[in-house]
């Protein structure tokens, strides 16, 4: 029976792989739901803080915070949000492709870049890419906290305040729905002007201790919340992409098993036929 045993072993091995991918698919599906909830939960804060800043920026026209002022670009910074683990389809590669295109654009103008990376996949990629990585945070887990991001954000904001970078971008996967995730490159600092919002009221806040320091604190928190939002969004994208990738893998494993079973049955049939014809041939020779 030619190869019968080998095919049987192969089938069993594919079945085991299929069990794993199916389990991963289900785990990813439930993690995705939780990540989506976190995404929703983080929204009110960002909205509230954006309102306050818009008002403050409008009311305090004479004081322009550096984070709000556009300046000539000599060097740019990126905060790249990637995943810690693989097996999530083309999620990271799509993001990196978008990033590389953006970097090329700057390179043609002779402008260099600094990077802060969240997630170990991004770190590995940028290191191979030969980029200058000035800070990173990895293994934030399934429930990232703002606390884990403060350092990374501060590295970049300090660089901006000290004039080492003139623009800061945030790169992450936007969670559109469970089937679609879109790589996004978003300018964070200088904060794109929300100046279109006309201030209709003519009052101003009382500031304690003073407007400047309050605005400073608010802006830092605002940017942190943006980065946190990006991390959570990227987390949801990761789980969604993994779910889809694992579903495809399970389906492929199923097809493979079908084909292998067919081959096995054919081999078995062939062996039986051969045996029969041998017996018949033997009997004929004797008779």
């Amino acid at each position: 029976m030619a190869g019968g045993k080998e095919i049987k072993t192969k089938i069993r091995s594919v079945q085991n792989t299929q069990k794993i991918t199916r389990a991963m698919e289900m785990v990813a599906a439930s993690k995705m739901r939780k990540a989506q909830e976190r995404m929703q939960a983080a929204r009110p804060y960002a909205v509230k803080i954006r309102n306050v800043i818009a008002h403050l920026a409008a009311a305090q026209a004479e004081y322009r915070h550096p984070f709000l002022v556009d300046r000539e670009v000599r060097r740019v910074g990126y905060i790249v949000v990637s995943t810690d683990r693989g097996l999530c389809g083309g999620l990271n590669s799509n993001l990196f492709r978008a990033l590389v295109q953006d970097i090329d654009k700057w390179r043609r103008e002779g402008i260099e870049q600094d990077f802060c990376v969240i997630g170990s996949k991004g770190l590995g990629f940028l290191r191979r890419f030969g980029a200058k990585v000035v800070g990173h945070a990895t293994h934030l887990g399934d429930t990232p906290s703002v606390e884990g991001l403060i350092g990374t954000v501060k590295v970049m904001l300090d660089a901006f305040s000290e004039g080492r970078i003139d623009r800061l971008y945030l790169v992450y996967n936007d969670f559109v729905n469970s089937m679609t995730q879109r790589p996004v490159i978003e300018q964070v600092v200088p904060t794109p002007a929300s100046a279109e919002e006309e201030v209709k009221h003519h009052w101003d806040y009382i500031y304690e201790p003073e407007a400047k320091s309050v605005l400073d604190d608010l802006l830092v928190r605002y940017i942190e919340s943006l980065v946190y939002q990006a991390v959570v969004e990227n987390g949801a994208s990761e789980q969604a992409a993994r779910m889809v990738a694992m579903k495809a893998a399970s389906d492929n494993a199923g097809n493979l098993i079908d084909q292998l079973e067919l081959a096995y049955n054919k081999a078995r049939q062939a062996a039986i036929t051969q045996e029969l014809s041998e017996i018949v041939g033997g009997a004929a020779a004797l008779g």
């Binding site: 509230k48 606390e147 350092g151």
Partner: peptide, 25 residues
């Protein structure tokens, strides 16, 4: 509107977190 922090914040601590991110890089 109360915009509450979830993390401990102090200038030195933020500095420390930034330092940690840099160092690990």
């Amino acid at each position: 509107t109360v915009l509450s922090d979830t993390a401990l914040r102090a200038h030195d601590l933020d500095e420390a977190a930034a330092m940690a991110a840099k160092e690990s890089a």
